[in-house]
């Protein structure tokens, strides 16, 4: 597992894909941060994190599309399959490599908060002693947001890896991943569509509940308000577990075809 982890991590940076991913992620996060926080003159980062999760729809497939599809296409997977490594070890090695690059991007994007802290510091200096503590971003919101972002990534990377293991074409892996991850993140938004009378477009409350329950974004909201939601943590980790498990099964099944 260590060997595969190291190899994958390196190959992200031998190929341009790792740099492209990190570059796009950092630029996207900076742009989103500018529009959702800085230019709208707010200290609330909830909008920023929400949009960033939506952007993951496109970004995560960049990380995961090649992981298994390329091995299959290049016929290199036989090397991994005949090596004394378990299938679980192989899948986890690749998973953690993608997760590491992802986490690096998320931590890098934390630079965005530095200008915000300067602004807050400047504003605090201008106000009276009593108001001072109410000014500036809430650390809990930011920490919650970053932790949730990591958790969402952990779940979605597993989804992307699973899809990559189904095909030998990177492009179709990417397209299908975008579709599936997009559906998983944005499905909750359907519940917020209203018609002309202000009635929800989906009439049945229970459908809205279910959609919100399934939605990745729906679970996300609590974190960005600084609430640590154990149910959501469990939900994200379950998704990661289920899809990694399925990926192992894909390989197991191919042995038994």
């Amino acid at each position: 597992m260590r060997a595969i982890y190291k190899k994958e991590l390196r190959s992200y940076f031998i190929n341009p894909i790792g740099y492209i991913y990190l570059g796009v992620f950092l630029v996207a996060s900076a742009v989103l941060f500018y529009f959702t926080v800085l230019s709208s003159a707010t200290y609330s980062t909830a909008g920023y994190f929400t949009f960033l999760v939506a952007a993951l729809t496109v970004l995560i497939p960049l990380l995961t599309m090649r992981l298994f599809a390329e091995e299959k296409k290049m016929r290199t997977e036989q090397l991994l399959l005949t090596a004394p490594v378990t299938l679980t070890g192989m899948v986890l090695g690749k998973y953690f490599a993608a997760l590491t690059v992802y986490a690096a991007g998320v931590l890098g994007s934390c630079l965005n908060f530095i200008p915000l802290s300067f602004i807050a510091a400047a504003e605090r200096a201008d106000t009276t002693e009593t108001l001072r503590s109410t000014i500036g971003p809430v650390p809990g919101e930011i920490i919650g947001g970053v932790v949730a972002l990591l958790l969402v990534g952990a779940a979605l990377i597993a989804v992307g890896i699973f899809i990559s293991s189904l095909t030998e074409n990177q492009l179709s892996a990417a397209v299908v991943s975008i579709g599936v991850i997009g559906a998983m993140t944005l499905i909750g938004l359907l519940t917020q569509i209203t018609d002309a009378n202000g009635q929800p477009w989906i009439r049945f409350a229970w459908i809205r509940t279910v959609l919100n329950w399934v939605s990745v974004l729906g679970r996300f909201a609590n974190f960005t308000n600084g609430i640590f939601d154990f149910a959501a943590v469990f939900y994200y980790l379950s998704i990661a577990f289920v899809f990694l498990f399925l990926t192992v099964r894909v390989y197991e099944k191919r042995r038994w075809r």
Partner: peptide, 16 residues
């Protein structure tokens, strides 16, 4: 598997 070295029909090489 530790006892085996295997060369498949197409050598499993990473071109990069």
């Amino acid at each position: 598997k530790k006892l085996i070295g295997y060369l498949p029909e197409q050598p499993p090489l990473y071109p990069d």
